[in-house]
Nucleic acid binder design. Structure first.
Lengths: 140, 140
DNA sequence: GTTGACCTTCCAGTAACTGGAGCCCCTATC
DNA sequence: GATAGGGGCTCCAGTTACTGGAAGGTCAAC
């Protein structure tokens, strides 16, 4: 199968598939004309990669997961550990974003958003001193 | 003030401050010995940048925000728009991560995490067909 | 005068692609 | 046989926002 077909099947852009070959995640054969020739197993691997990436696993995680998948003697504990660490990363990220969101939405709400220059958002970023109860002081 | 002092004051690494100069966010003076010489206004600007970055604004957002901050004729609407767009980006990101988190935590819960090779996480990534009610099928 | 802390510039690397240039291959049609 | 199109190929550069490191200059203290 040529790269275009595999791209369609796996949902990954051809560029990405070439990149995955570059970094050693797949090793398609080559036809006599130099075109990559993908086996079913390659397609399967790429689809696996696509799903793992969609879950936010890093490329290195993916590499480990593929290795574990290929190893029928694996312990599921190893897989689970990778997934749990990733889950923790996700939770941290969500927490970080949620905090940003809270501060930012306070500021946005406080901003008139009209033609006048007065702006609590800028005031907060500049840490301008305001009367007690300023959003900037309270939020961080 | 030298870069080290500014780093301490602003909380930004010296490397980052140099980088911000590189991309034109600050323009410190230079002493005769070639050292950067920061004014109070530079320090203020860098602290502004630090807070904006902490809220997740991109560097280009920061550039715009600094420009608006300097412009006393600005309309707060412009600032608000930048902040609202950023808020939307944050919301999308949170939504994406929350979805990942849901799928992933289902899979993690379903995985025994022991010495045996059977692993629902890998099975899902590989889209192995399971009996009806499989997590993989249900989750995506 | 020599440490040691601080400063300088420049280059390379990070993560995971993505875009583009310049070129080859294959099939179909005129 | 020429050409047009729609693949494919490689290689290089760019993205974001820094970060690390090398090689070397400056300054204050001992």
């Amino acid at each position: 199968m040529n790269i275009g077909d595999v791209a369609d099947l796996s949902g990954l852009p051809a560029k990405t598939i070439r990149y995955y070959e570059d970094i050693g995640l797949v090793e398609p054969l080559r036809s006599s004309n130099g075109y990559r020739s993908f086996r079913q197993s390659d397609v399967h691997k790429l689809a696996f990669l696509g799903r793992a990436r969609a879950l936010g696993f890093t490329i290195e995680d993916c590499r480990s997961l593929l290795k574990l998948y290929a190893d029928t003697d694996r312990a599921s504990a190893e897989v689970k550990q990778i997934a749990e660490e990733h889950l923790d990363r996700i939770d941290s990220k969500i927490a970080e974003l949620t905090e940003m969101r809270a501060t930012l939405s306070h500021l946005v709400d406080a901003c008139a958003g009209d033609h006048r220059p007065d702006c609590p958002i800028l005031a907060d970023l500049a840490m301008e001193q305001k009367a007690a109860g300023s959003i900037g002081k309270a939020s961080r």
